[in-house]
Computed example of a mutant assay.
Amino acid sequence: METTVTQKVFIENADIEWQEMAKGVRRKIMAYDERLMVVKVEFESGGIGTLHQHYHTQITHIESGVFEVEIGGEKKILKAGDAFYIPPNVMHGAVCIEAGVLIDVFSPMREDFIAAKEI
């Protein structure tokens, strides 16, 4: 199996640098190809994932922490072990209540994330 920088077979967390996104929010692009992307997002308590929308399908697993998640105008408090699904083009965001980490999965991959990383 051929591998590239973006398509490693084994992904080690320590090898990937954090990208600062906003006050109290940073991310690691863990792995991707043109169809799929996994991103780790770390939030300090009070960190905000601003309301936004995109054409990608997104599923997010809450690895740790507590978050108020808003999807399509509906809000719910979710904690470690929970997950949520965001259909394409639906407005969504999150506020971190207790510091934690989200694992985002996107299909297709987020080209805008790669472009931002290269700047």
Rank of each mutant, 00 (worst) to 15 (best):
G47L: 07
T3P: 00
V5H: 11
L36E: 00
H54D: 02
Q58N: 01
K8N: 10
R110Q: 05
I114E: 13
I16T: 14
I59F: 13
E63T: 01
I48K: 14
M109A: 11
E12R: 15
F10Y: 14
V25M: 10
I59D: 00
A31M: 05
V95W: 02
P87W: 03
S107E: 02
P108D: 03
R27V: 03
A115C: 00
L36N: 08
V39S: 11
G24V: 08
K76L: 11
G47Y: 09
G93L: 07
V38I: 14
K76G: 01
V25R: 06
Q19H: 14
I59Q: 02
H54L: 05
W18S: 05
E68N: 15
I29A: 01
T4Y: 09
M109T: 05
A94F: 07
I103V: 15
E70C: 13
G46W: 07
L36T: 10
R35T: 10
D15M: 06
A116I: 08
W18I: 04
D15S: 15
K117T: 09
L36Y: 15
E63W: 06
A80P: 01
Q53I: 00
K117W: 12
V41F: 10
K79R: 10
V69F: 08
V39L: 12
Q53M: 11
V38Q: 11
V9W: 09
Q19D: 12
Y55A: 14
E12Q: 12
D104W: 09
D82V: 05
H92N: 13
K28W: 12
E2D: 08
V39E: 11
L78G: 04
L78P: 00
F10W: 10
E20D: 11
Q53H: 12
I16M: 09
G46D: 10
F43Y: 15
F106T: 02
F43E: 03
E74P: 00
V95A: 06
K76C: 09
H54S: 02
T4K: 12
K28N: 13
M30V: 13
F10D: 00
H92L: 12
T4H: 07
E63Q: 11
A99L: 01
E34W: 07
C96E: 03
I29P: 02
V38T: 14
T4G: 10
Q19C: 03
V105N: 09
W18H: 08
Q53Y: 13
M1C: 01
V69T: 08
